[in-house]
Design a protein around this nucleic acid. Structure first.
Length: 423
RNA sequence: GUGAGUAUGGCGAAGUGGUUAACGCACCGGAUUGUGGUUCCGGCAUUCGUGGGUUCGAUUCCCACUACUCACCCCA
């Protein structure tokens, strides 16, 4: 092996492409049902976009970006997530000038420089959406509902939304103050990560896996963000939950949920499957558009990992996509003299919309029939010098075993008739 | 970034410091004439991730590298 694929990348081979297509089809269909329009933005952007958009203190920006300098000396970065680019495009193309709100979705590869492991690659795929232009809690609910619905439609069982509110520029600083007041006195007892978090983003301490840190939070009486919400945020969160209940969306709240991106305000959620982990996450980001230079515009969105979906589907079993028959006719060439004739027969079939193939290795008729079987062809067409002389073909139904010789001019009709009968 | 494990033909998988590296699947060929899915017979790794070292000799021992897997961190 001279050169192999870069670490953390994978080749999606024909054998599994069906599963991908199936997910993509469901995603496009459901986004259409909810009236979202597709948007495609560049795979790389100026590094600054992610630094500002995603947040300077996030793991993504601090240590996971694929950043490089192009020949013009610009610092570019392979997109680590979808939101920043979409918002940039929204602002740059002045989509806010169009009537109504913008409901956008995307689908494609993302890149993060991390150590690969199960369900984590350096190039992975996400689909997601962004809704710009409304702060209505109905929209938060719609987006969460859609998030769960899509996974159900794809075949994932037990997808649940875990919901929290991370507050707004009014309650967030207030909460931060309270956290500092309670935890600064016991700072030295926190783990080193959390000592850092205390300064930069105290909310994240709730997310720490360290038991001692969690105990300290309780002992110090540190309030969760949910307990510190301002009246507006609380009302918003309550409304979102009412909608979700009315819609029957499976969800639960978790005051400790913190997302890895800094731009979230108010509603934040992850979609989890018991015993598996997180498939996707999302939230509201009311300040992001303005931070990226656009007009004050509220937004909500989510992203979902497609590799993760594939993993859950595999674990939950049974969803192996049916082996699709992708060949209708196999043309067996009986002797070399008929080779050109065989090509003509194939062209005739293919141009009539029949999926047809032949042997190119000069194998025996017996071997060609074996191949026809293996490829899943419905019928075999045998052509040899005798057929060619009469402009005929020998057609064999590989299911019934029936065989007959007919004029070439009748072949397409005969094939189509059989196709219809087998539907 | 930290820690652990693995690396033998297309796939799965034995194995040993020393003449021909099991086996299964897949694949290819054959079992009389231009015909399939079963069965039978035969074929299919100058080579054991890469590069060094120890040795009379290494796929088996040692070192480095690379890749993969898993866990942690974090997340999709």
């Amino acid at each position: 092996m001279l050169v192999q694929r870069p670490r953390g990348t994978s080749d999606i081979l024909p054998a599994t492409i069906g599963a991908w297509r199936q997910i993509e089809d469901v995603v496009r269909r459901t986004f259409a049902e909810y009236h979202y329009a597709e948007i495609r933005t560049p795979m790389f952007e100026h590094t600054e976009l992610f630094a500002r958009g995603v947040g300077e203190t996030t793991d993504i920006v601090e240590k996971e970006m694929y950043t490089f300098e192009d020949r013009g000396g610009r610092s570019l970065t392979l997109r680590p997530e979808g939101t920043a680019g979409v918002i940039r495009a929204y602002v740059e193309n002045k989509l806010y000038g169009q009537p109504g709100i913008a409901k956008l979705f995307y689908l494609g590869p993302m890149f993060r420089y991390e150590k690969p492991q199960k369900g984590r690659e350096r190039q992975f795929h996400q689909y997601g959406c962004e809704v710009l232009g409304s702060d209505s809690p109905a929209l938060d609910a719609e987006v969460v509902a859609l998030h769960v619905y899509q996974l159900q439609e794809v075949g994932v069982q037990g997808a649940t939304a875990v919901l929290n509110s991370v507050g707004c520029p009014v309650c967030r600083p207030r909460h931060r103050e309270q956290m500092l007041a309670r935890l600064l006195p016991v700072k030295d007892q926190l783990c080193s990560d959390c000592q850092n978090r205390l300064e930069r983003n105290p909310l994240r301490i709730f997310d720490c896996k360290n038991e001692r840190c969690q105990r300290l939070l309780v002992e110090a009486g540190a309030p969760t963000i949910l307990e510190s919400l301002c009246a507006d945020c609380e009302a918003h969160f309550a409304a979102v939950r009412r909608y979700l209940e009315a819609l029957g969306v499976p969800y639960r709240t978790d005051a400790h949920l913190v997302r890895g991106l800094d731009y979230y305000t108010r509603t934040a959620w992850e979609i989890k499957v018991e015993g598996f982990g997180t498939l996707g996450g999302g939230g509201r980001y009311n300040a992001l558009v303005r931070e990226l230079g656009g007009p004050e515009t509220p937004g909500v969105g989510f992203g979902t990992g497609m590799e993760r979906i594939l993993l859950v589907l595999a674990e939950q079993g049974g969803t192996s996509p049916a082996v699709r028959r992708d060949l209708d006719v196999y043309v067996a060439v009986a002797d070399e003299q008929a080779d050109v004739y065989a090509m003509q027969v194939l062209k005739t079939l293919r141009e009539a919309g029949v999926r047809a193939d032949r042997d190119y290795q000069g194998r025996s008729v017996k071997a060609q029939f074996k191949a026809a079987d293996r490829e899943g062809a419905r019928l075999a067409v045998v052509v040899g010098s005798s057929e060619q002389a009469e402009q005929q073909v020998t057609v064999k139904d590989l299911v019934s075993g029936e065989q007959s010789t007919i004029p070439l001019s009748e072949l397409v009709a005969a094939v189509q008739k059989l196709e219809e009968a087998s539907v």
